[in-house]
Structure formats: structure tokens, C-alpha cells
């Protein structure tokens, strides 16, 4: 299993380079596509907030920065959730006809998520500096937070992949679900202080990931370190499990999809 993973690194790299090149070569806006969606999201929420349609409780950070970092980080997480299913479905003709280490698809998805995350982060950091927020020492630990976001995303995405390849319902439901989860995570709102909503936010395993990542990025003291560690440990275990499932599932999926 691990030998296959090692064997697939180079292939994963090639596939990632192929997909990234192909993706941006056929666009006029190019790299801008990597961050246009969270940018638009931020703009929408700022408008809603400023117009007073929805009042958002006071945040420690200036609200524009809060929303902007939140949506950017959430977009990275979304990318990593979508990647395994997308990669596997896109590679159907190849899967059905060529025997190659299947891990390569997942790893290639991670590479691509990282690449797009890099672009998003450059934009985010630039925006932070312009708005006068100094990231501080915490930034040194930010890569860890970034990797845990991608780890969690990949584990969850991979969990859905075997069923998602058979039934396209999963692929259709995923954006809806993610939208729903976004509002249960402090992405565009801060944590509610009390009531059932506060409990939900607390239980949501994504909360510590997003909050820690944002805190590190904006030079705030990380508030949820314990939760962050627990979630990471849990996600590692989950990833190992779904990886085994994925390997077992692929031959069965191939005979059912017969591309």
C-alpha cells in the first residue's frame, strides 16, 4: 500500500502538472480563476453586512478581513473535499483501461489543491498587508494549519468517493451540503455566544481548523488549539481508513462504470 503511494508520486506530479497546465491554458483570466469565487463571496457578504440586511456580531478582526480570510480558507477546504471525487470521475476512461497506482489520482488532487491554495494565499497576504494587518510570528505555523485543512478535506472527500462514483447524487448533493456546513462554521459569521447554534458550532470539527488557520494568518492568538489537535488526529485515522476502502473499491467501481 505504501509502496504504491511512493510509486505514484511521480505520476501524481505529472498528472497535476498536466491538469493545471490544461486548466489555465484554455482561459483568458488564467490564475485569477483560483480566487475569483471567494472574492465574489466576500464582496457579497460585505454588501449584505454594510446594507444592514444581516447584522453580524462584532468580530475581533475588522469584518472585511474576517470574511475575506474566512472565505479564502473555506475555498481551500472545499477544493480538497471535491478533489478526490472529481479526479476519480475525470480519470474514468484511464481507470477502465490502464492499470496504474490509483493513489496517484488522490495525490494529484492534493497537489492541485495546494497549487490553487498557494495563489489564494498570495492574494490573501497581499490584501492583509494593504489593509494593515500584520500576520506576525504565527504565520510560521500557518502551513500546518493549511495542511490540516487539506487533510480533513481529503479524508472527507475520499470517504464519499466510492459511492459518489457509482451514484452521481453525491456529486450533486456535495455543493449543497458544503454550503450548509459553511454556515455552521465561523466563515462569514463569528462564533455565536450561546444557544443551540453555539453548541453546533462547537461540535463542528471544522470550526477549530478554520479558526486556527485564520488566527495564525492574521496574527491573533490561536483560540482552539486543543480542538485543532484532536480534529487532526481524528482526520488522520479517518484518512487511513478511507484510503483502504478506496483501494478495495476501485476494481469494483471499474466493472460497474465500464467507461
Amino acid at each position: 500500500m505504501f509502496r504504491d503511494l511512493m510509486a505514484s508520486r511521480e505520476l501524481a506530479w505529472q498528472l497535476a502538472v498536466r491538469d493545471i497546465k490544461a486548466q489555465y491554458r484554455q482561459t483568458a483570466l488564467g490564475l485569477i480563476w483560483a480566487f475569483i469565487l471567494p472574492l465574489a463571496n466576500t464582496a457579497a457578504w460585505l454588501m449584505i453586512h454594510n446594507a444592514g440586511i444581516v447584522t453580524v456580531r462584532h468580530t475581533d478582526l475588522p469584518y472585511p478581513i474576517f470574511v475575506f480570510t474566512g472565505t479564502m480558507l473555506w475555498a481551500i477546504f472545499m477544493d480538497s473535499v471535491n478533489a478526490p471525487l472529481q479526479q476519480t470521475i475525470a480519470a474514468r476512461p484511464m481507470l477502465a483501461k490502464i492499470n496504474f497506482p490509483r493513489e496517484a489520482l488522490v495525490v494529484s488532487g492534493i497537489y492541485q489543491t495546494l497549487f490553487n491554495a498557494g495563489i489564494k494565499l498570495v492574494v490573501t497576504l497581499a490584501a492583509l498587508l494593504i489593509m494593515g494587518v500584520a500576520p506576525g510570528m504565527g504565520l510560521a505555523f500557518f502551513p500546518v494549519a493549511l495542511l490540516s485543512l487539506i487533510l480533513a478535506g481529503t479524508a472527507l472527500g475520499l470517504l464519499l468517493t466510492p459511492i459518489g462514483v457509482l451514484y452521481s447524487d453525491i456529486g450533486k448533493a456535495l455543493p449543497l451540503l458544503m454550503q450548509f456546513f459553511m454556515y455552521l462554521t465561523p466563515v462569514v459569521f463569528p462564533m455565536p455566544q450561546s444557544g443551540w447554534a453555539a453548541a453546533l458550532f462547537q461540535v463542528n470539527p471544522l470550526t477549530p481548523l478554520i479558526v486556527t488557520a485564520r488566527d495564525l494568518l492574521t496574527g491573533m492568538p490561536p483560540a482552539y488549539m486543543d480542538g485543532f489537535m484532536t480534529v487532526n488526529a481524528g482526520m488522520l485515522v479517518l484518512l487511513a481508513l478511507v484510503w483502504v476502502v478506496y483501494r478495495a473499491a476501485i476494481p469494483i467501481l471499474i466493472e460497474r462504470m465500464s467507461a
Binding site: 498536466r18 490544461a22 483501461k97
Partner: peptide, 10 residues
């Protein structure tokens, strides 16, 4: 499948 995995744009 000859050429499976070719990307048309590259």
C-alpha cells in the same frame, strides 16, 4: 486504449 490519458490541450 492507445492514448488514454492524453489531454487534448497539451
Amino acid at each position: 486504449a492507445l492514448g488514454a490519458g492524453f489531454n487534448p490541450i497539451l
